[in-house]
Design a protein around this nucleic acid. Structure first.
Lengths: 211, 211
DNA sequence: TGACACATACCAACCGTATGGTATGTTTCC
DNA sequence: GGAAACATACCATACGGTTGGTATGTGTCA
């Protein structure tokens, strides 16, 4: 998606600016409460431009979820938690990294696709599926390390790598909910501490990692 | 809140029916996408009745969150997970109970206040706070058992009872998000299995409980 | 090489309707 | 009979979406 235009628009094109606007506004207000006019105002474009790039508001929602999947993929690929040589260390570093980036305003660190999926899971299967691909696709990037750690250490619990990978996303998403309800990011961070402890226990590692 | 009407209306009064309608519709469509007309139609009342009982739509949101807190409190107080004599067994039975009631349609078992908090945490502090009270109030009902279990067994980990109580809610709320994104309740259930395993590990209990 | 056909990106103004909310009744109950 | 509990009819506007247009780039063929 978002294939680059042949002719080079001298500044960031309207489509990208609309997707960035959607990312920011929807995280704060939700999808339904975000109006097309909101998006156009923040993106600095007119409605004509909006409906040139997107068939309707729902199509923007799908594109925003895909845009989110792309940008977060790049972000996490470039993140430092891949550095450790031991796979378990990488998994724990991932959790620590997720905790570390929870700071500042809620709308700056919460998850666009988690927010949208919550809202539109009944009303828009297309947006929901795009959100699902983003979440489960990201979870899948953890599976290899979890499975490698499991084999390395001969762990034979009654759980699977893919299930644990999804569970990390459960804790992250749930943490965002508590943080919003309590209006305090600390609620999201403390659950990541529990998640880290859980993983260390699963692998019989007792020492605390970096907080 | 929601003090019973003085004169007893032979059938459920309009206010209650509107709150029940809100509970059902908002869980499916979200708060912003739920219109006043939607609520009136499902409740079988007119807009006059709506604005007689609620100053505006936001006031209904607050009342719906409070209504949710009351009804779920009663529901969980009457639930069978309080039966075991050992406090840890009660905590594990709670988790098993939360897993057991995840069945049927998503909108039937997901959490109203988690959904609303997600949407309105910026736009309506009043609704957000009412949602927060419901979630954290419910979490608090678990603290005594967790703390008792901790003392009984002389557990001295670097975690607190209130933090673990909140973490259970994080996993439950996050599970709902994954279930919605993946359109399958199984994603919520599998994370509750991880949560149960985590708690058992914290208390060095290895045997599986009832699934 | 230039000019013509066509496509893309974007804008300004407009439209029908759905929406939250109001004004004004009417019924019901103590 | 008076107040609370509803209903009916209506309003202003915000909303998603449309229409018609301009400016600019791009491929093509004589």
């Amino acid at each position: 998606m978002s294939r680059p235009t042949k002719q080079t628009p001298e500044r960031g094109d309207a489509r990208t600016r609309l997707l960035e606007a959607a990312r920011n506004i929807v995280r704060a207000k939700g999808f339904a409460a975000t109006t097309v006019d909101d998006l156009c105002r923040v993106a600095g474009v007119t409605k004509g431009a909006f409906f040139h790039h997107f068939e309707n508001k729902e199509a923007l929602g799908v594109a925003a979820a895909e845009f989110w999947a792309e940008t977060t993929s790049s972000f996490f690929e470039a993140a430092p938690y891949h550095v450790p040589t031991d796979p378990l260390d990488r998994v724990l570093a991932y959790v620590a990294f997720r905790k570390a980036i929870i700071e500042g305003e809620l709308a700056e660190f919460t998850c666009l696709v988690g927010t949208m999926a919550q809202e539109v899971h009944v009303t828009s299967p297309e947006i929901r599926d795009a959100c699902g691909q983003s979440i489960f696709g990201h979870a899948a990037t953890l599976e290899a390390d979890i499975e490698a750690a499991r084999r390395d250490r001969g762990i034979t619990g009654d759980w699977t790598a893919d299930s644990l990978a999804r569970h990390t996303q459960t804790v992250i998403q749930g943490g965002f909910i508590l943080a919003k309800a309590g209006n305090d990011p600390a609620f999201a961070r403390e659950s990541l501490d529990h998640l880290s402890r859980y993983i260390r226990q699963l692998f019989s590692v007792t020492q605390e990692g970096a907080t």
